[in-house]
Amino acid sequence: MKKFIIGMLVSNQSGVLTRISGMFGRRGFNIDSLVVGVTEHPEFSRMTITMTGEDYDRDQIIKQLEKLHDVYEVREMLADEIVSRELVLIKVAADRKTRQEIMTAANVFRSKIVDFSTDSLLIEMTGESSKLEAFIELMKDYGIIELCRTGVVSLDRGATCLKNK
């Protein structure tokens, strides 16, 4: 099993997300994360999908996505040709004894403390998923109260881009 990232331009309309996520469900593909947001062009939304599977799954997903009328462009984004980022908000239990240690760790991971209370810290962190996961793992010792991840967004390095077909 490998990890794949798929980038897409889709029409910016209601129902498009249902259509796409429905296709994944119907064909039995598992996706790890799906991020969608508006773009600089009001007609298009951009989606980044990360998935785990075999080459067959990736090929079928891309081909089936290409068939959807609302999908303008879809392709695999290769890890060494792109920049990928994910954001996590993580609320960690913190008292007088542990607070300083957590803040040091947050600093080492270049994250920000965005809320501070007597018994917790809210940390915002951006980076590649692996970095986020390492930090989350580290925080487990202190007690994670809750966390929220955005899923991965990716863009090509250099001038390459997803073009409207």
Binding site: G15, T18, R19, G22, R26, K67, H69, D70
Partner: peptide, 10 residues
Amino acid sequence: VGITMPIVKH
């Protein structure tokens, strides 16, 4: 539209 989504071309 929701019901038929998986069984139509569009």
